[in-house]
Amino acid sequence: MTNDYLWDPSATPDPDVERFERALGRLRSTPPVPVLADMVRRKPDATGPIRWRTARFLAPSLAAAAAVALMIASTWQTTRSAASWEVASLEGQPRVGSTVITETGRIAVGQTLTTDASSRARLDINTLGAVTIETNSRVRLLAARADQYRLALERGTLHAVIVAPPRQFVVDTPSSRATDLGCAYTLHVDEDGTGLLSVTAGWVSFEYRGRESFVPAGASARTDPEFGPGTPRYDVADQRFRDELDLVDEGPRMKGYAMGLAYVLEHASVHDAMTLWHLIPRVASADRGAVVDALAARAPMPDSVTRDAVMRLDKAALDQWWDALGLGEANWWRMWTVTPR
C-alpha cells in the first residue's frame, strides 16, 4: 500500500510524500542541549526538580539535606561562570530566548540574545572582557568553557573588548570565524551573511575553510559567504584602494579582478605590505609573481627566503617574510588550532 510509507519511512517511498519530506525537512533543526546546572541556577527557589515525590524522602534527614544544599551551592559557584554569562540591558528590552531582559539576566549555552531596533545589551564574560550587542542583532552562546568562549553572530553588530589570553574568545559568523588574539574589535554581519571586522586594538585572526586573515589594529577585513575572510587593509587606505581590493577578493573569475589587482599593486604604500603579503596565496597563480615583486619592492625579502619558495607558497618562507614586516612573529598566531567547520 502506497501510504505505508507515510507510516513507515523504511517502506517503499511514495514520491508524493517524499516531495513533502524534502521541502519540509529543510525546517528540521536541533538546538543545543541546555546545561542542567544553569537551569537550576536560574530557578534557585525550585531547588531543581527534586520535588518530584522526593521531598518526603529527604525530610527525615535535615542534616543530609543541609549537606546537599551546601554541595549544590558549591556546585553552582563552580559552574556558574562556566555555564552562563551575565546579560545587561543597555537600552530597550533585549531578549534571551523568549525572556525579556529589563535590567540584568543570564544567557546559557545554546540560547540566543536578540536586540531589536531600540534595544542594546552587554555580555559580561567574567574576567574575560565584555561584548556589547548593538541594535538589530542576534547572537547565540555556543560555548562557555574555561578554555574557550564562543559566540555566533547571526546578524547585527558586536563590539568586543577582550582582556583574556589570546585564542580563548571566538565569534562565528555565517562566513568566518574571528579568533581573538588579545584585542578590541567590532564585528558586523549583514542579513545576507556578508560582514566586516574592524580591529581597534591588538589582533584578530579571521578564518574560514582554511583561508586566513590576520587583522591588526587599525585594519579591517570583509567577510563573504562566497569567499570567506577578505584581505585585510588598513583603514587609512583611500577608498579607491579598498574598493579595488574588494574586487580582487571576489576572485579571478569576477569582472574587475584584473584591473583591481593592477590598481592595488600600483598604489600600495609601504604601509600596505601587510595587505600584499595576504594577497600572495589568494591571487591567481599567474598573478602571484607580480604580487611577490610588489611586496618585495615595499618590504625586502629576507636573505633566508627565496622567490621560488614564496611562489610555491612554502609556509616557512611566507612566515619568515611576514616576520620581516615588523608586525610580530607569525609563530605567535600559528599557535591556535583551527577547528573545522
Binding site: 533543526s29 538546538p31 542542567l36 537551569m39 536560574r42 527534586i50 520535588r51 530566548g97 523568549s98
Partner: peptide
Amino acid sequence: PRRDVDDLVQDVFMTAYTRLGALR
C-alpha cells in the same frame, strides 16, 4: 514563527526540568 522555535525548544525543556516534580 520559525525564527523563534529553537529558543522555545530550549525553554520548554528548561520548564520541564524545573517542574519535573509535578510529573506523577
